[in-house]
């Protein structure tokens, strides 16, 4: 995973609650066996006027000109501003893959669904929880100011507004450490291989039926 560095990016507002994973990336695109290339189909049903098919050249499709990500002022957005319960629904990691492939590096919302939240960190996408009031205020500021940008400073756990105001946010120590250093979870866990083996042999003794049944 790439290291997560401080950046300043355009904010795109997605003003609806309960954005589910089917909306983020519809199921027909889950048939891919790759991790990349989902960006053109992010929010497919909202972005285009026709029904998308996997493998299709999306640049030729009719755009929904009113959808926020199609508005010229949000071109190149790296920060998605959203409402509560973002990412609810399925466990598909294709959702964060599509968001990062599109170019997003962070999603700000009052709350996230658990699995999506967890999947995001594993893919260099930082989900930031802010209060409903602050999110509301950000929606207003984004609407009022074309080219509105925020700086995301993970190391200091703060968002910096154009006027210099700092908004602090919480992030789990371990997840922050992994993001900043671009660490792979598996490598870290395997440093504890001995502890896993000790646990496993104890478990095998206590509950032998959990082993060797399926083969």
């Amino acid at each position: 995973m790439e290291k997560y560095t401080q950046f300043t990016g355009i904010v795109a507002p997605l003003d609806r609650a309960n954005v589910d994973t089917d909306l983020i990336i519809p199921k027909q695109f889950l048939k891919s066996i790759k991790r990349t290339g989902f960006g053109p189909n992010l929010f497919d049903e909202l972005r285009y006027l026709d029904e998308g098919q996997p493998g299709q050249d999306s640049s030729q499709r009719p755009l929904n000109k009113e959808f926020v990500l199609n508005l010229p002022r949000y071109k190149g957005a790296q920060i998605l501003l959203a409402r509560r319960n973002f990412g609810c629904g399925s466990s598909r990691e294709h959702a964060p893959w599509a968001l990062t492939d599109f170019g997003f590096r962070t999603v700000i919302a009052p709350s996230f669904a658990d699995i999506f939240f967890n999947n995001s960190f594993k893919n260099g996408l930082l989900p930031i929880v802010l209060s409903e009031e602050i999110v509301d205020q950000l929606f207003n500021e984004v609407a009022a100011n074309e080219g509105y940008k925020l700086t995301v400073d993970l190391a200091n756990q703060q968002i910096v507004k154009p006027d210099g105001e700092k908004i602090p946010f919480e992030v789990d120590e371990f997840r922050k450490h992994c993001l900043i250093n671009g660490l792979d979870d598996i490598g870290l866990t395997l440093q504890d291989a001995d502890a896993i083996k000790i646990y496993e042999s104890k478990r095998r003794q206590e509950s032998p039926w959990l082993f060797d049944a399926i083969k």
Binding site: K122, D185, T189, E200
Partner: peptide, 21 residues
């Protein structure tokens, strides 16, 4: 449920990194 990165993690380590809910 888990995501694909965790599927790989479980395959490779038989463990998950979790926080108690």
């Amino acid at each position: 449920g888990i995501g694909t990165s965790e599927v790989e993690h479980v395959l490779a380590t038989q463990c998950l990194i979790q926080k108690k809910m």
